[in-house]
Design a protein around this nucleic acid. Structure first.
Lengths: 166, 166
DNA sequence: GCAAGGTAATTTGATGTCAAACTATCTTGC
DNA sequence: GCAAGATAGTTTGACATCAAATTACCTTGC
């Protein structure tokens, strides 16, 4: 065995030169850079959360709930930008683990509202701590451009996030 | 500049005012804005591509291939940032539709290389045209901050895209 | 009042993704 | 050479997601 630990094999050269080829046609496309930046940074967060046995998708749900007394699944779905049907299994899992409580809505039998439990609040803080660690790295990378970055990203989300028929 | 937070959160009322409430704990997190901006803009592109019966995931594959004579699935996987196993079914579909050709590698029986066909090149141009339309909107939104945006996003991808042990 | 249509949540089906297991092949140290 | 380990591609399993269909309940026009 050869051993070279870092043997680098494929062009990737792992750490050796850290250079990722960007296809020429993509170099000027904001959408490409946006996608790659988001995916790589989110995966780093997800990996860290996963090591603590936490689902990254829970973070936004718990955080949104942490800021409001209670909400219906539909409200949660709109604010988190996920289809309602996607929430069904998440809420089931969160409820099963005692992180949220469901309570029937007396005014509407179809609906119910969801509220964080004490454990849920604890879990939210734990996930937030992990997120903040990662975001600090993003802050460093953005440096003085952070405000501009957030402003532009916000405009993008506002523009494309409009319900299509508006 | 920072653009301003939505004052109203409560109602949400769909289109009525087009403002999406951003949870307070997320307002200062770059990762959150990155995620929302990427998801909303990518979905807009995916929807447009889907109307032409094109899979958005094909775009990066075809484009990368358009810039090189031929590549192995593993190289493609690294450049596109997708797991190798993910490419298996995509390449099968692309091959089945006659958009790419596979050819065995005489030097290594395990491997093969992939090349665009004429139809594949046509399809790539078509997808690129759609992507460019969307990216033009992103350009407008970014305005004079485009260069800064791309630079920051590139640094993020480079930092987090490193193989984990670096 | 009540039928028609809307809404809340769920279920189901199709995708896209990663990671881990697997098979076949190549490479290397000895 | 050849056994041990690395590598290429695939298969399989687990998820997250969306969209369409379903069910139960609500609201409205008349």
């Amino acid at each position: 065995m050869p051993a070279e630990p870092s043997t680098q094999q494929d062009g990737y050269t792992a750490c050796a030169d850290g250079e990722m080829p960007v296809p020429a046609m993509f170099r000027n496309l904001i959408g490409y850079h946006l996608r790659v930046a988001q995916e790589t940074s989110f995966q780093a967060f997800a990996r860290a959360a996963g090591k603590a046995d936490l689902k990254p998708g829970w973070y936004s749900l718990l955080t949104v709930l942490a800021e409001r007394n209670s909400m219906t699944p539909s409200e949660l779905s709109r604010i988190c930008g996920r289809d309602r049907s996607t929430l069904t299994s998440s809420l089931k899992a969160l409820s099963h683990r005692g992180l949220i409580e469901r309570r029937p809505n007396p005014d509407d039998q179809r609906s119910y509202s969801v509220r964080l439990t004490e454990n849920g609040r604890r879990m939210q803080k734990q996930l937030h701590a992990i997120a903040v660690v990662y975001d600090r790295r993003l802050d460093e990378i953005a440096g003085k451009d952070k405000a501009v970055l957030i402003a532009v990203l916000g405009r993008i989300a506002a523009t494309f996030g409009m319900p299509q028929d508006c």
